[in-house]
Amino acid sequence: MSNKRSTFLLSALVFGFAFLYVPILLVIIYSFNEGKLVTVWAGFSTKWYVSLFSNDGMIDAAWNSLRIGVMSATLALALGTPAGLVMSRFGRFKGRTLFSGMIAAPLVMPEVITGLSLLLLFVTLEQMIGWPAGRGLSTITIAHTTFCAAYVAVVVQSRLSGMDISVEEAAMDLGAKPAKIFFVITLPMILPALVAGWLLSFTLSLDDLVIASFVAGPGSTTLPMKVFSSVRLGVSPEINALATLIILAVSVMIVIASAMILRSERMRSRASAGADA
């Protein structure tokens, strides 16, 4: 009986992972296709990579995206970390419900709504106080920072909730003041969550098409906007090459991160084994 069940689970896993990975693998394979058509294998070639790197528009867009990504991930960390701290450690305060709502809602809010509303805000602000003058990298950065901060807050909050609060109390008991406790005790302990939060924000920012399309101005085309406009016309081997590069970069990053997590998990399990001995 349990055999039947594990066979079912195994096939579910195999099917599921095939579903997740076959399309990605096909993209990678066809990025090395000499021909332009997906259906025909015309031989191995790296010419699409060459043409990708000589596409100035694409390179500019990538550069824009990277700058926005780094800035908004960093800002999101600076805003999201205190937000997560407030949610898990500050207890009740006036307006807490609204605060937690403003953290949870961006996670699920359809992007078209967020994008439209931010654009209207920027336009209104410009009319009223003259800032931001026009739209571009800075408005995209603000937009990305806002929803990324919500992600960071959730990541930080869940890490803090899983952390023994008495460790921080012990520091206070031994004479450390709140600000010092945060920097000497809390911050080092949630460092993995902060790294994860930054990387998450960075990829979310790098990936966003819809919100950026709303709040972008002339000359601030991001990589997804560029990709979208070329993909709309159908399959393009250059995009395959770009996709392959992105997948490669992400895979390397993820493998390193998981290796680090695995290591710390192993250390933790060894620690608990030591406690039992």
């Binding site: 008495s166 460790v167 109390e169 012990a170 003041k177």
Partner: peptide, 28 residues
């Protein structure tokens, strides 16, 4: 708490996981 003449030994011990034994004891 940080100005009281009391110190506490916590049920979970609440040792700072990222500090050595020496650093933990020296913290106060």
């Amino acid at each position: 708490a940080y100005e009281r003449p009391t110190n506490m030994m916590f049920q979970s011990y609440a040792l700072f996981p990222h500090m050595s034994v020496e650093q933990n004891v020296a913290f106060g």
